[in-house]
Write a protein that binds this DNA or RNA. Structure first.
Lengths: 175, 175
DNA sequence: GGGCGGATGTCAGTTACTGCCATGACTATA
DNA sequence: TATAGTCATGGCAGTAACTGACATCCGCCC
């Protein structure tokens, strides 16, 4: 994963071959493909762990929380995990933003996160389409907040950006 | 496009080669790749036309419309285009739902549609993050409504499903 | 010392995709 | 009618992602 991120940063994703990644990591191409289903996946290995954190937080949200607030509690938990690695997130995001295939992979990971959140909400007794809609809104908040967080120059915390975006969303939906 | 959809339906996306698609269409593989950037794209050729329709409808929405309502006016315009081809949409969606790579492509097309809607909203004078959030919410409404429309057995119109989903979303955001 | 399971290496094969050049059909113009 | 130019297509060779089958090696247990 380290070798891949470095190489993608140096030459770009397309101009880096899997053989080069494997060589830098001291392995062979075949071994790379035993750990990662494809070349893109090497940048998204942490996603499933993050998803577990999110789902747990949704399940653990206070009983009084609305579906949307419970869903956003999930992505706030994710933000706590990411908060300390902003430089890493930034390098990674720069690579993703420079390549369309990687953006596709990022989107399907976010979509999977959304369905996981919707499932967790249903376990809380939330019915459809409220569960799906709340999950989609939480993902929208996360996408926009994360984008602002990695591109800003200041030190504002991801959590506070998420809170602000959520309030904006509520305002936009009611106006 | 016809040959590809048929073959994907018969054998599945992965077990269909581009050579086979080209042969059935009476062409060569090389010519296929002159019309479609990659094998997946053959299923998404109509997306850019649909995007134009959506953007136009957002721009043309009444001055009094809120950002969210203007954005949803865009996807309602798209629904009018799709309404008459439900069988086609259904066959196409079955192929997409059976393959992860195609889902990725679908998601990035929807994301592109979202940024196009956000741009159109900004042209209406809507500021960020309202523009982005309204666009994301409209896309969420579309995803959920379209999914219900293609999977339902009845004849309920896509437009009416969109209206209902939008009302649900507004309720979820305010509760 | 001898098996045993798991991680790794090797190698051949398929397929998506690209660049380059050739060819044939159609069109505008002298 | 002849010629030149443009455009769609074909042919072909090459790269790189990915896969399956088999060999090997290393740590470990008996």
């Amino acid at each position: 994963m380290q070798a891949a991120l470095d190489l993608f940063g140096e030459r770009g994703f397309e101009r880096t071959t899997v053989v080069e990644i494997a060589e830098r990591a001291g392995l062979t191409e075949r071994t790379f493909f035993r750990y990662f289903a494809d070349k893109r996946e090497v940048l998204f290995a942490g996603a499933s762990m993050l998803q577990d954190v999110v789902v747990q937080a949704v399940v653990d949200a206070p009983h009084s929380a609305t579906p949307l607030d419970a869903a956003v509690a999930g992505i706030e938990a994710a933000s706590a995990v990411l908060q300390d690695g902003r430089e890493l997130s930034r390098r990674r995001q720069a690579v993703i933003n420079a390549n369309r295939e990687l953006q596709e992979r990022e989107l399907i990971k976010l979509a999977a996160l959304g369905t996981a959140i919707a499932d967790a909400l249903r376990r809380r007794g939330v019915k459809d389409p409220s569960a799906s809609l709340s999950a989609e809104m939480a993902i929208a908040v996360f996408k926009i907040s994360f984008g602002r967080w990695v591109s800003q120059s200041g030190q504002r915390e991801l959590r506070s950006i998420i809170r602000a975006s959520l309030n904006e969303l509520k305002g936009v939906a009611t106006s």
